[in-house]
Nucleic acid binder design. Sequence first.
DNA 1: GCATATCGGAGCAAAACGCTCCGTTTGAAC
DNA 2: GTTCAAACGGAGCGTTTTGCTCCGATATGC
Lengths: 227, 227
Amino acid sequence: MTEHTRRAPRQAEAERNDRALLQAAREALAADGAHASVATIAERAGVGIGSLYRRYRSKDELFQRLCVIALEEYSAAAEEGLAHGDPWEGLVHYAMASIARGPGSLAPIAGTITVTPEMADKNKRADAAVKALVDRAHAAGALRPDVTAVDLELLIEQLAKSPLLDQLNRQGRTDLAEAALNARTRVTAIALDGLRAPAPHVLPGDPPGYELFSERWTSPADSDLVR
Amino acid sequence: MTEHTRRAPRQAEAERNDRALLQAAREALAADGAHASVATIAERAGVGIGSLYRRYRSKDELFQRLCVIALEEYSAAAEEGLAHGDPWEGLVHYAMASIARGPGSLAPIAGTITVTPEMADKNKRADAAVKALVDRAHAAGALRPDVTAVDLELLIEQLAKSPLLDQLNRQGRTDLAEAALNARTRVTAIALDGLRAPAPHVLPGDPPGYELFSERWTSPADSDLVR
DNA sequence: GCATATCGGAGCAAAACGCTCCGTTTGAAC
DNA sequence: GTTCAAACGGAGCGTTTTGCTCCGATATGC
């Protein structure tokens, strides 16, 4: 139909496979953590291992691509939130989008892959948007004043990974998937309501520093900057 | 000192080792998921592999013991909460205790081990206590009325596992541990505040069914009852 | 110093892993 | 209908990891 598919008919399947691979990789990563095997990913995508390795030279390369995509989605969600007229609704949009993006939190592979400059860039951009989102919500008096951007990001990360969904997925219990998704939505709503102003009390402890985020992605081996 | 240690002097070390093993198993399970190896557990506990296998006949048996202990602690936390004079504070006590019990959520091994009748029993008892706790908080008007016991348990499960702490642990970044713990406390406080009455809105979707919990522990292989 | 109980960890068979390689299938061109 | 190149799936290789056994070293009570 499009010029793209016309120019290379057979490539349409390749593109579908690529998408399936990325989706499968996310799911496998959520189900099995960093130990997710390429065989699992390929099988889940309904694709041969050979096809996987034609597209990505190694497992790490696949995971890197996954990270870049995730960062792009986070950025997009934050900027969509900023575009929203209402400060609170905008913030909730960002949070919900980031959480719903899937149980595919990337935490399991943090520190196991090399951070490319591209990732660092995209991450910086997303952070700026989130900070703006938080500032605006603070100014409007919608967000409780003692919550920082880091608090928000950590809360989102906490809610992004669903032990329940991961396990059902692992066991192939598709029958309960819908109920689990609904339950997850409710839990998310509860937790996000805790962000609203006015707050019933002041949050304990000192505001968390940003290093909790930034230092996660530098592998334990190299403490120097990305190259 | 106690009669226990006097009666069997050398067994004191064994008992210490046992506790270290259980603690190490929890940590390893949090860090590596279901793939945590016995070697890792033993090393983390500062104990030889031989000693591990003298106490537990297999890896599964160790994990089963871990589950039983966790269930006991959940029960205890819930009953402590009930003993608390204030309905809201009691509920918060239960939630905080369950969450702080550690990033050692057992979700990773759910479905991989055989559920003993003992576990089923203890689980039943804990559930009853939680239900009473929720009912009491509802009656007192402290807990938002649209939250069910299952909602609460799922929220706790969600908060119990900390991706951040797990990763820092995996990388051995003990320097950030304190800051991460503090951040975690804040996030927990935010989420629990979302449980308070009055609620800013009604929770979306239908209340989750209990099967989301009960069916988790039956292994995918045997759909019949525990034996 | 001897008997006994507990310890740590080298080593083994089996499983799981990342990845390569190659025979098969697909669909447009003629 | 034949041809050809591009994309496919998956068996299999060598390596690493794993659960667990076995045994020599070490500590304690008498």
